[in-house]
Every structure is written in structure tokens, then in C-alpha cells.
């Protein structure tokens, strides 16, 4: 099913009941541009991710002020500085909880997390596991370059075993994390992989993620041309296979688990697993029944209600 077919399908389509978001609102590509020039190395995979995110928001008709992009610290986490959108560039490893807090305070805005493999799977790994099972309405784009790039080339949680880096001159000893399987095991409800070298296809995947009801993980293979001489554009391009064209059914968890085991000669991209059966966390938060916190008056606790709280203490 394409994104457009699903649009407006009710729960799980990612749209809000008030229909605030929607295509055809006179938005143009220019609306997502800023005067700020990226400091990324020419040819960095992050350019493709930036282009794809802008394109996805435009296609979805999500205006820059209706979204917030929350990032960590790393090369790729500078992304919100390079487009016109609300941005919060937080700490190394902490964008998920910051974004979750934002989403719980203001579920009327679209919240997108952008961070590196070091952020997401390393220093912020605990947040990531809990976000998977918590299922808040976040789109999580992980710029997975299998290296610590900003700090100039140390091994990361996704670096393949045996890779020589500045902190593993004899080859790394640890086995890499498998983000797809880890997310599946942790209870994630939307798990996908994309490739920064194919921005159009990536934009399509981001749009799918934007339509998901809860937490959507999109692990993005991102060539770092400066510090990762192994996982290059060509290296990925030779190995990528499309789940969709191979008839994979994203509603089949066991099939997803099996395909998630492939990473080597064949690297599947596309949506591994998706279910819309699990409510987003914020759908079930009692404190939100009266609407987004940020839209309510600060003094909505009247005299009688306050006195009732005092009387509980008699």
C-alpha cells in the first residue's frame, strides 16, 4: 500500500484528528531552506538524508513550523541547523528522551529524531531500548555510518568486527549490534532500513515512518567518506536488496526477524516490520485527556479544585 492510499485512513495514518497536516498547502522546497551552509565533507551521506527529510516533509505537507527535529551530537546531528524547521540539537545520546518529553507535552506537533549510530545505539542505547517498547509517536532517523565521525574515526557500536580504527588499531574485538533485530526484540512497532545514497527512496521510507502511529525506527546506511573507508557508497550499492521487491510481508514478525539477520553479501533495505495495533504511548497518557499541555492555560486549576487538593490532607 502506498503512502497516499493510506493517508486519511484514520488511526495509524500519522495524521492528527484536526487535519492540520496535509498535502497541497502551497508549500515549496524553498520553505525548508535556510541560509546556513552545511559543514559536512563534500560527498558525505548526510546530504542525502537532509534532502530526503526535506522532500518527505514537503510531500506530506508538514510545514516547517509544524515539526521539530531533535538531534544528538555528531556529524549527522547537525542536520537541523541546515534546514528550516524547528530544531533542538541536544546532547550526545539524549535526543530520544528530549523528543519524548516534547511529544508528551505537545502531541500536536510532528517530532523527528535525527542522530548517529554512536548516539542511538551507544551512549543513548538505554533510551533507545525503552523507546522501542514505549512506542511514543516519534520518527527516528539514525545516520548509521558505522563509525564515530565527528570525533575523527573511532569504532562505533555498528562497526564490523575486525575493523581497524584509531581505538582499534589491531581490529575491533566486539561484534556489532544488529539494530534491526535489537529493535524487533525490544518491541518496536515500525522497523526499517534505508540508504543515504538513494534520497528518493529514502524520502519514501521517511514518509512511511511519518504515517506510523508510534515509534518508527529508520536505520539509515550513511557513507562517511572520510573516516569509513570500508562501508562506501559502492560497498553498500553492491549489496543492497529491496525487501519490497522480494515479496517481504512487513506484518510478518518471523519473516522480519529472519530478514533482519542478513547483513553482509546481501543487505536488505525497506520496511522489515510494521504493526499499527499498538497505540502510541501518548494515546494512553491520562494527563493528556484534556488536550496538549502546552495549549492549556497555566491557571486552569481553579479555587475549588485547589481547595479540594488541600482538603485531601485533612
Amino acid at each position: 500500500m502506498s503512502v497516499d492510499q493510506r493517508a486519511g485512513a484514520g488511526r495509524g495514518d500519522g495524521r492528527l484528528p484536526d487535519g492540520r497536516h496535509g498535502p497541497g498547502r502551497g508549500l515549496t522546497a524553498r520553505d525548508y531552506m535556510t541560509e546556513q551552509r552545511p559543514t559536512w565533507c563534500p560527498g558525505c551521506g548526510d546530504f542525502g538524508i537532509l534532502a530526503a527529510l526535506r522532500e518527505a516533509l514537503l510531500q506530506e505537507g508538514i510545514a516547517p513550523h509544524e515539526a521539530v527535529v531533535v538531534s544528538g551530537i555528531g556529524c549527522g546531528s547537525k542536520l537541523p541547523d541546515y534546514m528550516r524547521v524547528n530544531g533542538f540539537m541536544t546532547l550526545h545520546g539524549r535526543p530520544l528522551p528530549v523528543a519524548t518529553g516534547f511529544r508528551l507535552a505537545n502531541p500536536a506537533m510532528r517530532v523527528i529524531v535525527v542522530d548517529g549510530d554512536g548516539d542511538a545505539y551507544g551512549i543513548g542505547g538505554n533510551h533507545w531500548l525503552h523507546t522501542c517498547r514505549r512506542n511514543p509517536g516519534l520518527v527516528h532517523l539514525v545516520e548509521n555510518n558505522q563509525i564515530y565521525a565527528l570525533t575523527k574515526g573511532q569504532y562505533s557500536p555498528t562497526t564490523e568486527q575486525g575493523t581497524r580504527t584509531t581505538t582499534s588499531p589491531e581490529g575491533s574485538i566486539e561484534r556489532p549490534v544488529n539494530p534491526i533485530r535489537t529493535a524487533l526484540a525490544a518491541g518496536a512497532t515500525f522497523v526499517a532500513r534505508g540508504f543515504a545514497g538513494e534520497p528518493k527512496e529514502l524520502a519514501r521510507l521517511i514518509r512511511e515512518a511519518l504515517h506510523h502511529r508510534g515509534y518508527a525506527l529508520l536505520d539509515i546506511l550513511q557513507p562517511c567518506i572520510t573516516y569509513n573507508k570500508v562501508n562506501t557508497y559502492d560497498w553498500y550499492a553492491e549489496r543492497i536488496v529491496r525487501l519490497e521487491s522480494e515479496g517481504h510481508d512487513p506484518s510478518d514478525f518471523d519473516a522480519a526477524w529472519a530478514r533482519a539477520g542478513e547483513f553482509g553479501e546481501r543487505i536488505p533495505v525497506g520496511v522489515f516490520y510494521r504493526t499499527e495495533e499498538v497505540p502510541a504511548y501518548e494515546e494512553r497518557v491520562p494527563g493528556l485527556k484534556r488536550g496538549p499541555v502546552v495549549e492549556r492555560p497555566l491557571d486552569d486549576l481553579d479555587e475549588a479544585a485547589f481547595e479540594a487538593l488541600e482538603r485531601e490532607l485533612v
Partner: peptide, 29 residues
């Protein structure tokens, strides 16, 4: 929480707790 419309979150750790509060504060809560 429900009668007063307070969002409360027992987070996975204190790093998450303060980050959630900061995210909510950034949003305007």
C-alpha cells in the same frame, strides 16, 4: 494526573527524566 491534566513519566533513568523535562519545557510546558 488525570483530573489535573498532568503528564507524569517514570523514566528509564535520571538522564532520560531531565531530558524529558527539558523537551517538555522547550515545547512550552
Amino acid at each position: 494526573a488525570e483530573p489535573l491534566g498532568i503528564v507524569t513519566k517514570h523514566a528509564e533513568d535520571e538522564l532520560a527524566a531531565i531530558c524529558m523535562a527539558i523537551g517538555a519545557g522547550f515545547a512550552g510546558a
